[in-house]
């Protein structure tokens, strides 16, 4: 079973200003490659969490691996490679979206073909329903749900990764949970852990319009 670990030390922007000389030691290269390979499945899961589409996710992982491999001189040995890869993947995803001018994604996507038949363990949140509900969320909300709910980033860390304010992260998280709760047929009041007035006001529709 693949274990999802918290991100640990957090990513920089993935693009340090002063590249070091390229790695030429075959043993070191092999070690770095081995570590890169070890992150591939989780990297693909992160890509799926953004795209909800297998083909797009595979494209994204492929591009990320190529970029990472060609930029190994920028990776600091001993730091968190997973976080570095996530940052490259995320930047690539949003860059591709901007280039394509595609701000509305195919929410129905390929998820239909990926629906799990496994029974839910908790009896309430059916996995198939959850996947469908997730696919309908704006990617910005899915991303925050993944960073905080799955990968256990703090609000501040998620804000740093996403390049937005902490309040925006909180509102995206609250909206994402609220939407999931509604689409799962849960009482919204039971599913939101409102932490501050700003978040409440946003979710209640009288906030400052944070996405």
């Amino acid at each position: 079973m693949t274990t999802v670990h918290p991100a640990g030390d957090r990513p920089s922007d993935g693009h340090p200003t002063e590249p070091k000389p390229k790695r030429t030691d075959p043993a070191e290269l092999a070690q770095v490659k081995e570590e890169l390979v070890s992150h591939m499945k989780v990297l693909r899961a992160f890509a799926l969490s953004l795209t909800r589409n297998s083909a797009q996710a595979d494209d994204l992982v492929q591009d990320t691996v190529l970029k990472a491999w060609s930029a190994l001189d920028r990776f600091e040995t001993g730091t968190n490679m997973r976080a570095w890869l996530f940052t490259i993947l995320r930047n690539t995803y949003y860059s591709d979206r901007r280039k394509a001018g595609r701000m509305v994604e195919d929410a129905e996507g390929a998820l239909v073909g990926r629906l799990s038949e496994k029974p839910a363990h908790d009896g309430r949140l059916q996995m198939t329903d959850l996947r469908t509900a997730l696919a309908k969320l704006p990617v910005e909300q899915r991303e925050v749900l993944t960073l905080i709910g799955v990968l256990q980033y703090s609000y501040e860390e998620a804000a740093d990764v996403c390049g937005v304010k902490v309040g925006t992260i909180k509102s995206r998280l609250a909206r994402g949970r609220l939407a999931l709760a509604e689409r799962m047929g849960l009482e919204p009041d039971e599913t939101l852990d409102m932490t501050d007035a700003a978040t409440r006001s946003v979710v209640n529709g009288n906030g400052s319009g944070l996405a």
């Binding site: 693949t2 499945k41 969490s49 959850l130 997730l134 949970r177």
Partner: peptide, 25 residues
């Protein structure tokens, strides 16, 4: 309820992370 949602999200993520990599990757 919030924790329950997060746990379900983690299961979805872990389920995805357990899939075999496609041949091209």
């Amino acid at each position: 309820a919030a924790v329950q949602i997060d746990e379900s999200l983690r299961r979805v993520f872990e389920e995805d992370a357990e899939e075999e990599l496609p041949p091209r990757l």
